[in-house]
Design a protein around this nucleic acid. Structure first.
Lengths: 204, 204
DNA sequence: CGCATAGTTGACTACGCTCAACCCTGGTGG
DNA sequence: CCACCAGGGTTGAGCGTAGTCAACTATGCG
């Protein structure tokens, strides 16, 4: 299911969607808002965050182009998190009831949607697995290898600020910086600017 | 959808399932095995673990009675993790193709299944959010409050060994033990044996 | 040119980990 | 009935790693 291919959607759904443009830093919806829509990102990058007590922020998820967000809206009354544009972005809003109707009427779409949910579950489990690796440079290496399905591919272009990557990994930017330097010194990676090449020198 | 209510399942599906009993410590399926079935736990507790390079173990998920596991089997060729019984357990095995057929034929079941997947996503996100809380006693307090929907309920009975809970939280048993003692000293909780009562004394 | 921001580096701190010892309980067998 | 053992949970002491805070550089933008 490609939710960004508007033309191939059933007509009833196509007529009910709206397209929204978001500037850098703009909020799509806020924690506790009434859950009205499922969204799909057509361009840009949306960050889902949660405010824990005392103003601390936890990044739930980074949603990129072609991916959906707020699936929970389909089965809940309010959004459990806040959605903010990390860069200028565009999203499509699917009203929840219309979307559910379509899933009921088109089993193939429902199946594709389920497959996407399952992929998201796998991705979250992987991030959780990463957190169980305590040593910074080892965690970072796992992350990098996973990004490109190492050893099939070995080149990574980091398209996001290090501080965002660090927060996704559960580190401070300083620690990520030192981890990359360490990995380079150990010969596990090579760096030039924002391009990283994974080496075969297995450092456990 | 109650996947443990066998009698209410469509006949084709009901005829294709099998029931398995697992003893404490027994393996249901192993990482890299061919993905044949979706499972639902009817009693006991199943632990999903992954072996990272070098024998390190990461606990993916704890699956309890009435919950499903290995949804990924529906859309993948092999299991990405190993399933082990934490205690004596019983599971129902649903062959993947038959299960997918039923989801296609019964939109209501598909919708219930999706709702379950979304809940699982929320649960994983919560665990990830927990990991962003670095101070042990604060993380534990969040966990406890989430368990019982504090402040609506305040009593928790810990039915699993502390070492399992500690690993789910990303701590060693020693750290969990000290965190609980600290919370009790601060007046945030009261303990007697394995029963914990949350207090209203807000310690941030 | 000034300013803001990302990234790096350094010194110090603080927290959880490690490893060891100990207590307590429940189960087992003599 | 008691001796023994195994495992979970609790302490304690010391270590190691990431966090913190500050300074510095480089880059891009108005």
């Amino acid at each position: 299911m490609d939710l960004t291919a508007i033309d191939s959607l059933p007509e009833t759904l196509r007529n009910s969607i709206t397209i929204q443009n978001l500037a850098f830093g703009e909020t799509l919806f806020a924690q506790e808002d009434e859950a009205l829509n499922l969204y799909v990102v057509t361009s840009g990058r949306i960050k889902l965050v949660r405010y824990i007590n005392g103003g601390q922020v936890s990044t739930f998820e980074i949603v990129r182009a072609q991916e959906s967000l707020a699936e929970v809206a389909l089965f809940a009354q309010i959004y459990p998190c806040t959605a903010v544009a990390e860069i200028d972005s565009q999203v499509i809003a699917y009203p929840k009831s219309e979307f559910l109707n379509v899933l009921r009427a088109y089993p193939e779409m429902a199946q594709d949607f389920m497959s996407m949910l399952v992929r998201k579950i796998q991705s979250l489990k992987f991030r959780l697995e990463l957190r169980d690796i305590r040593i910074a440079h080892e965690r970072v290496l796992h992350y990098l290898r996973h990004l490109v399905n190492f050893p099939l591919e070995t080149t990574i272009i980091l398209d996001r600020p290090f501080k965002d990557i660090a927060s996704e990994l559960g580190f401070t930017p300083e620690t990520l910086s030192r981890a990359l330097i360490r990995l380079e010194a150990d010969g596990a990676i090579a760096r030039q600017e924002r391009i990283i090449t994974l080496q075969n020198n297995s450092v456990a």
